[in-house]
Design a protein around this nucleic acid. Structure first.
Lengths: 189, 189
DNA sequence: ATACCGTACGGAGGGAGTCCCCGGTTCGCG
DNA sequence: CGCGAACCGGGGACTCCCTCCGTACGGTAT
């Protein structure tokens, strides 16, 4: 439905430069990074930016789609290598790390995990990350590492919360592990 | 140390109007509410606002000091009425509710729970809320509802995280209770 | 009761940013 | 090589923050 015709070469160049610069800017300044500044740093006019990405959210999502899909693939990788419970915990850990270190990614994931009651159109990132969580959680249930009455999306939200908690403390990866462990102990089957 | 001399009557009036309006505005729009707008709604010029509260944080803190002290008193009240474990859980629940419903209060509490490693001057709100948590946690430890190796401030941060998680889902008080329960089960002695 | 002094007020205004649009210009596909 | 697609970058309309300074009013001393 998108992309009715191939992009012109310069358009494609600019598009990709914008994505790269945007990913950096959002990582550093969070969701609210200056769009004019992103355009400037990418060496394009602001008009060009708005033509490719009509809204801030569109740019944010495009900038991190790769990363989110990587996260989803990583889930399957971990599922193969580790026992179900550990795979889940490790994946949530990496999710938290991304949420904290890359600030814009955090808000993107946040809205991906938000409720979809009000007929909100599900985003690509949302479906990817939810799908990954479902696969890991159902395996973990089988092995008794997670109670049967905990929904995958609830776990995602709790992990998001853990990231928020760890961010306050500032203890880095160690405090994420700690908080996540405390949480997972409460979820055993 | 403050208040070397009584405020003039009009100054006091304005001061209090500002506090009231600011509490509403921060509750609705979060920490970033427009200061010009607050001044306007309070019927004062923006200069007056800045004279009383030199920074946004100063206003935010002044607007919610009462509420935070109320929360601290509430801790002692609950401690008298309920068994230690329940008192702690209930208090954390009420903390989460405030964090979510009153958005500005959320960010204030957030920074109150943040790390103080870098010689940050502890705020009034920070000491109050930490003090309350310490009293409740030490009682709860005695009764075995909380493991001995969990610091009060860690619990505060985790509760803050739970609030964030519950906010994503939008299930209101019920989801706070649920997430908090899941968490507390992992913390038993 | 009044006059004086200084505190506190108001709101205009400059600077910074954001978003979006427009007109002329350049690029590159066919 | 021609023409349409895409670019550039400046500018307008907005919002927000914060400072400044002439002015008004409250409190007090007479």
């Amino acid at each position: 439905m998108t992309q009715v015709r191939a992009m012109r070469a310069d358009a494609r160049r600019n598009y990709e430069r914008l994505l790269k610069v945007a990913a950096e800017a959002f990582a550093e300044h969070g969701e609210g990074a200056s769009l004019d500044d992103i355009a400037k740093r990418a060496g394009v006019g602001s008009g060009t930016l708005y033509r490719h990405f009509p809204t801030r959210r569109a740019l944010l999502e495009a900038a991190y789609v790769d990363r989110v899909e990587g996260l989803a693939r990583r889930a399957d990788e971990l599922a193969e290598r580790l026992p179900p419970g550990e795979a889940l915990t490790e994946w949530l850990y990496e999710l938290c790390v991304g949420t904290i270190q890359v600030r814009g990614l955090g808000s993107l994931l946040g809205s991906a995990m938000a409720g979809t009651e009000g007929g909100v159109t599900p985003t690509v990132c949302g479906t990817r990350v939810r799908g990954a969580a479902e696969r890991l959680v159902s395996a973990a249930r089988g092995s008794g590492s997670v109670r049967g009455d905990v929904e995958p999306v609830e776990l995602l939200r709790l992990a998001y919360g853990v990231a928020g908690a760890a961010e306050l403390g500032g203890g880095g990866g160690a405090s994420i592990r700690r908080y996540l462990t405390l949480l997972m102990e409460g979820l055993r089957g």
